[in-house]
C-alpha cells in the first residue's frame, strides 16, 4: 500500500499523469477552438463578420455551442438499432483520442529540473507509432459506417457507405506515403523520425522531410484530408445530396461527439504531418526545451490550411474522387515508394 502511494505521489508519475491530462483536455479544447476558427475563417474569406454576439469578438461562441448541445433533447429514430446507434459515436471519439496517443509534441524535458530524468512529451512512445496511428484511423471508419447503418435511414446509410468506400480507397495511398517516410528515417517511432530531421542543409534549409519527400507530403495531405472527411473530400456528409450524411439522425451530445471526433482527427493528422514532414518541434530561434512552441505554431498553420482549403475548393464529384484516389494518388505514391527504396538501397539516402 505504501509502495503504491509513494509511486502515485512521485514526481515522475504526476508529470506523466499531467501529460495525459493535458493531451486529453487539449484535444477537447482544440475541437472547440477549431469550431470558432472555422466560422471566423469562413466569415473572413466570404467578407462577413462571423460570430460576434457572445463575448468579445464572439470568443465565447464555442461555450454557448457546447451548452446548447449538452441540453438539447436526444432523439433516436424508432427503427434504429439502439445499441449500435449509441456505440457508433463512442467508437468515433475513442479512436480519435487513441490515434493521438503515440504522437510526441515536444523534446524530452525535465520540467525545469523538477524531474531526475527527462520525460518525453507524449502519452506513449511506441516503437511502431506510425502503424498505431494508421490502425486507429482505420478503426475510425466503423464509427461512421455503424452510425449510417444503425440510424436506419437512407441518407445515413448512403453517407456511411460512401465514407467507407472513400476511406478504404485513400487508406492505401496514406499508408504508402507513411511507408516512404519510415524508409527514409529507418524507424517507425515518431520520436526518432523527428530527431532525424534536425540540422540544416547549406546552413539555412532545415532538414525536414517535406523537402526530401515533397511527393509523399502531397499524397499524405490529400489522403489525410480524405481520411478526416473534410472538404473537398467531404462526401460522407455532402449537405446538398445527403442532408447531413451519416449523422443525419443524430442530435444533442451524440451529434457533438461526431464533430469532436472530426476535429480531433484533423488535429491528429496535422500533428502527424508536423512530425513526419515538418521537423516536429525543431526550429530556429526557440531553445530546444521550448520546442513545443514550434510544434504548436506548425500545427496551427496546418489546421489553418485545412480551413483555407475547405472555403476555397468546391467538392469533387464522386467519380472524380474515386478516380483521383485510385488512378492518381495510388500510382504516384507507389512510384515514389519504389524510387525512395532504390535511393535508400543504392545511395544510402
Amino acid at each position: 500500500m505504501a509502495d503504491i502511494i509513494a509511486w502515485v505521489t512521485s514526481p515522475a508519475f504526476i508529470a506523466y499523469a499531467s501529460i495525459v491530462g493535458v493531451v486529453f483536455m487539449g484535444l477537447q479544447i482544440s475541437a472547440a477552438v477549431m469550431v470558432y476558427a472555422e466560422r471566423k475563417v469562413a466569415a473572413f474569406m466570404q467578407q462577413r463578420l462571423g460570430p460576434t454576439r457572445v463575448g468579445p469578438k464572439g470568443l465565447l461562441q464555442p461555450v454557448a455551442d457546447i451548452v446548447k448541445l449538452l441540453f438539447k433533447e436526444e432523439l433516436r429514430p424508432k427503427a434504429a438499432d439502439a445499441f449500435l446507434f449509441t456505440l457508433a459515436p463512442i467508437i468515433s471519439v475513442a479512436t480519435a483520442y487513441l490515434a493521438f496517443a503515440p504522437v510526441p509534441f515536444g523534446a524530452p524535458t525535465t520540467f525545469f529540473g523538477l524531474l531526475d530524468e527527462p520525460m518525453a512529451l507524449q502519452v506513449s512512445d511506441v516503437n511502431v507509432a506510425v502503424l498505431v496511428i494508421f490502425a486507429a484511423s482505420s478503426m475510425g471508419v466503423y464509427g461512421i459506417v455503424l452510425a449510417g447503418w444503425a440510424s436506419n435511414s437512407k441518407y445515413s446509410l448512403l453517407g456511411g457507405l460512401r465514407s467507407s468506400a472513400q476511406m478504404i480507397s485513400y487508406e492505401l495511398a496514406f499508408g504508402m506515403s507513411l511507408a516512404t517516410v519510415v524508409m527514409v528515417a529507418g524507424s517507425m517511432s515518431l520520436r526518432e523520425i523527428v530527431d532525424d530531421q534536425q540540422g540544416y542543409w547549406f546552413g539555412f534549409i532545415p532538414q525536414w522531410y517535406i523537402f526530401l519527400q515533397p511527393i509523399a507530403f502531397f499524397v499524405f495531405a490529400c489522403a489525410g484530408i480524405a481520411e478526416t472527411n473534410r472538404a473537398p473530400f467531404d462526401f460522407p456528409e455532402a449537405e446538398q445530396e445527403l442532408v447531413a450524411g451519416y449523422h443525419t439522425e443524430y442530435s444533442s451530445m451524440r451529434f457533438a461527439m461526431f464533430f469532436m471526433a472530426e476535429y480531433i482527427n484533423m488535429v491528429t493528422v496535422s500533428a502527424v504531418a508536423v512530425n513526419l514532414f515538418l521537423g516536429g518541434w525543431h526550429g530556429p530561434f526557440i531553445p530546444p526545451e521550448y520546442g513545443w512552441i514550434w510544434f504548436l505554431i506548425k500545427l496551427a498553420f496546418l489546421l489553418f490550411c485545412y480551413l483555407w482549403l475547405r472555403w476555397t475548393l468546391p467538392r469533387f464529384r464522386y467519380d472524380q474522387l474515386m478516380s483521383f484516389g485510385w488512378k492518381v494518388l495510388l500510382p504516384l505514391a507507389t512510384v515514389n515508394l519504389l524510387l525512395t527504396a532504390a535511393g535508400v538501397l543504392y545511395f544510402g539516402l
Binding site: N127, L131, L161
Partner: peptide, 26 residues
Amino acid sequence: APFVAVVQIIIYAGAIMVLFLFTVML
C-alpha cells in the same frame, strides 16, 4: 510482437472486416 499486433488490427480488424461489414449491410 507489437508489429504483428498492429498489423493484425490494420489488416484484419481495419481492412477486411470493413469489407465484410460493407457486404453484410449492402
